[in-house]
Design a protein around this nucleic acid. Structure first.
Lengths: 148, 148
DNA sequence: CAAGTTATTGCAACATTATTGCATTTAAAA
DNA sequence: TTTTAAATGCAATAATGTTGCAATAACTTG
């Protein structure tokens, strides 16, 4: 459930990034924060049918640009969006966390607090960031598999 | 340059997966093997304009299903395709290698022979595979940056 | 707090990509 | 060679990404 302090947090977030506090934007933020997994653009669209498709598209773009949300691609290449951890901002947008794609329920989990081991690359490559995708069964689905 | 033994290899590959040896399929295989980086669907399309778009689409799907190629998403979420290492097959399709997205030239490199460090997940998650994406500058582009 | 300014929205239109059905063609098998 | 099963190419449609523009809503300033 969305609390008053969440609303205030969202408004602050928009303020911080010089984005106007509009109804569609606040609704997108509260929708995303109410979900434990990343949400695809089509899903967001059907969850908030009264927001225009193009508006949603632009809101997501603006949020991503500002470092408020990040984009994750699932196993089908569909873009999924999730709120960034509070540490991200426009200039230091690090989504170096781990993404988990469940092959059963298709949900995308952002496992923010995992620290990744160092990864070495061949000579010449100069990495600026890493993203790790794991696929398999999420806790819910692996539990179901055992229960059967 | 494509050698006779490559053609034979491709034909064998199709045979092995019970796919008919057709001209478009062989052309797609030789095109992909001639490129050091993964190739996007739009690029493949313009490289082989006389192959129908739908045919290309279906060829790529069939190849991926059989474990002949794998799909990599670049920073824009566009699918890029590359030949799998010879060890992949239908039942053991492990593309647990490292993908490198160059932010300059946009090329996608498949760094097959890197072994990834073990990655641990929260309790309940049962991973079946990992894919690591690094983004940054590839050897060519980082060299150019220094030269300037 | 009213008026002006600017960002944002929603609509229409268009571009690109993904996907399906079907008739025709081609490769492999008999 | 004939048969048959798969693959191709075309047409059509669906889904998604993107732009321009007029109307609207949010912020700013006097």
């Amino acid at each position: 459930m969305i609390q008053t302090r969440d609303i205030q947090h969202f408004e602050h977030l928009l303020d911080k990034h010089h984005l106007k506090k509009t109804a569609p934007r606040l609704r997108v933020l509260s929708m995303m924060s109410s979900r434990s997994t990343a949400t695809s653009q089509p899903d967001l669209e059907s969850l908030m049918q009264d927001i225009d498709r193009v508006t949603l598209y632009r809101i997501l773009n603006a949020f991503e640009e500002k470092g408020i949300i990040h984009k994750v691609f699932d196993l089908n290449g569909t873009a999924n969006y999730a709120l960034c951890s509070s540490k991200c901002d426009e200039h230091d947008h690090h989504d170096e966390h781990l993404h988990f794609n469940c092959i059963q329920c298709k949900n995308v989990y952002c496992l923010n607090d995992m620290n990744l081991p160092a990864i070495s690359l061949p000579a010449g490559f100069e990495p600026q960031g890493f993203t790790v995708y794991a696929n398999g069964l999420c806790p819910k689905c692996s539990k179901k598999a055992v229960d059967k």
